[in-house]
Design a protein around this nucleic acid. Structure first.
Length: 437
DNA sequence: AAATGTTTACCGACTA
DNA sequence: TAGTCGGTAAACATTT
């Protein structure tokens, strides 16, 4: 297919959209991945027009990278310097008619119904999936993923499945349980925390289901002899094998899960139809700080502010349209986080069933009487994370052992939130803990 | 601090 | 005419 040569358009603006330019750049690289700066360089090299006003078009380009599902961010491996790389979504190949970048066929969205698995693996995604298997495998309950091509293929294909059944999540869902900053967020709100949990769970569940299906031979590799070895049991997700319950799957869990928030989520993890699609930073922080409705908060600020007349011309929020004014249309085809949140079922926290000093199903002894405040050892929850330093969290996240070098116990029980937060964090902990055998 | 990444908002052109 | 798409600005978050 024709590709524009160097300086094809002189100082003229080339007839390519940013999406086209970016796709062009990425495709031109041998392994079909490029860093942002390499994309910049490619465009500037080839099209002199873009050697000027760099701030402007580079901002637009970054916007396009983030906004369009056809671009996927590929994290660097730990041993590699720099930020991530950008690649093309494996199934976005037909975005441009006849492979020409001049005309866009249709906006690429990951919720296109796709029948089965795409044949052929885009090599640009391979290192991505290898990275995923290494870094996130444990978190989502995968056990050992080898480095062989076939297993990376499997991850890739599962991801395809996942994407085709989970319209909302355009990129591989990295769990983003970032530590909360003390004093900034305050108490976690059970509802929003549950929404985050629901997000995490539905993403992970979707991915796992896809993997399980494949392992069961539903989709691919029928009769594969490595069917089950790579899967752990995750409570709430029916296994395809004769189930060997993990040691941590105690009766306690089964019992409490029938009424606990987690079971509620289990039944509601699929996004409702017609729910908006968005790539969202669903970090606990963002959810809890209510950062999803900047419009409302800004309006409030501006109406309070005497200097509101000085607001930017371009970015007028137009709080009140004059009567009979032509109302500007909402961009309903764009991401909309508030509606996204609405899409989650509201969770009414049930009565706490879990002792605040132990994760459900663990061997933590459960005293019949409430323990004195000095014991037991503090456990982490999302709630306690709100009162912890990042290093505490990081350390716990990596080792599973709360830091003990601090005098103060940071565990502060909270009956309203702990059933939810414990459910969330216990889940996360279990993901990191689970090991087959 | 600078680069990179995410999201909202608005506008104009195009299209079904 | 409503919906879709591309471009731009801007605020803000995250990562290096």
């Amino acid at each position: 297919m024709p590709r524009p040569g160097r300086d094809s358009y002189g100082e003229q603006k080339p007839p390519y959209s940013y999406i086209a330019l970016t796709a062009m750049a990425i495709q031109s690289s041998p392994n079909k991945m490029m860093s942002l700066s390499e994309i910049y360089r490619y465009i500037m090299d080839r099209f002199p027009f873009y050697r000027a006003n760099t701030q402007r078009w580079q901002n637009s380009l970054r916007h396009n990278l983030s906004f369009n599902d056809c671009f996927v961010k590929i994290p660097r491996r730990g041993d590699q310097p720099g930020k991530g790389l950008w690649g093309l979504h494996p199934t976005c190949g037909e975005m441009f008619e006849n492979g020409s970048f001049l005309r866009r066929r249709k906006r690429f969205k990951t919720d296109f119904p796709q029948s089965g698995i795409q044949n052929g693996v885009n090599p640009s995604m391979m290192s991505h999936y290898q990275h995923m298997s290494h870094n996130y495998g444990k978190e989502i309950g995968l056990n050992i993923i080898g480095e062989t091509q076939i297993e990376r293929n499997r991850i890739y294909q599962a991801h395809q499945q996942f994407l085709s059944h989970q319209p909302r999540f355009g990129t591989f869902p990295t769990p983003r349980y970032t530590p909360m900053k003390p004093g900034v967020i305050g108490h976690p709100n059970p509802e929003t925390t549950a929404a985050a949990v629901a997000y995490f769970r539905s993403a992970m569940t979707g991915f796992r289901n896809a993997m399980n299906k494949m392992a069961a031979g539903d989709v691919i590799n029928p009769g594969s002899d490595v069917k089950y070895s790579m899967f752990n049991s995750v409570p709430g997700i029916p296994p395809f094998t004769p189930h060997q319950p993990h040691p941590t799957d105690s009766k306690e869990i089964e019992r409490s899960s029938s009424v606990s928030p987690s079971s509620d989520e289990e039944n509601h993890t699929s996004p409702p139809e017609n729910s908006p699609k968005s790539k969202i930073n669903f970090s606990i922080e963002n959810i809890i700080s209510g950062r999803f409705s900047p419009k409302e908060s800004k309006l409030r600020e501006e109406s309070d502010s005497p200097t509101s007349t000085q607001r930017s011309k371009k970015r007028s929020l137009n709080p009140v349209d004059p009567p009979n004014a032509k109302r500007s249309r909402n961009d309903f085809d764009r991401a909309s986080t508030p509606r996204m949140l609405d899409a989650f079922p509201k969770v009414i926290p049930p009565k706490p069933l879990i002792h605040p000093w132990g994760f459900p199903g663990t061997s933590t002894p459960k005293p019949t009487n409430p323990p004195p405040s000095t014991q037991p050892p503090p456990q982490f929850s999302l709630h306690t994370m709100a009162h912890s330093r990042p290093s505490d969290y990081t350390s716990f996240y990596k080792t599973g052992i709360p830091r003990q070098d601090s005098n103060e116990s940071r565990y502060i029980p909270s009956p309203e939130t702990d059933d939810v937060t414990f459910s969330a964090f216990a889940k996360l902990k279990r993901f990191t803990e689970l090991q087959v055998q």
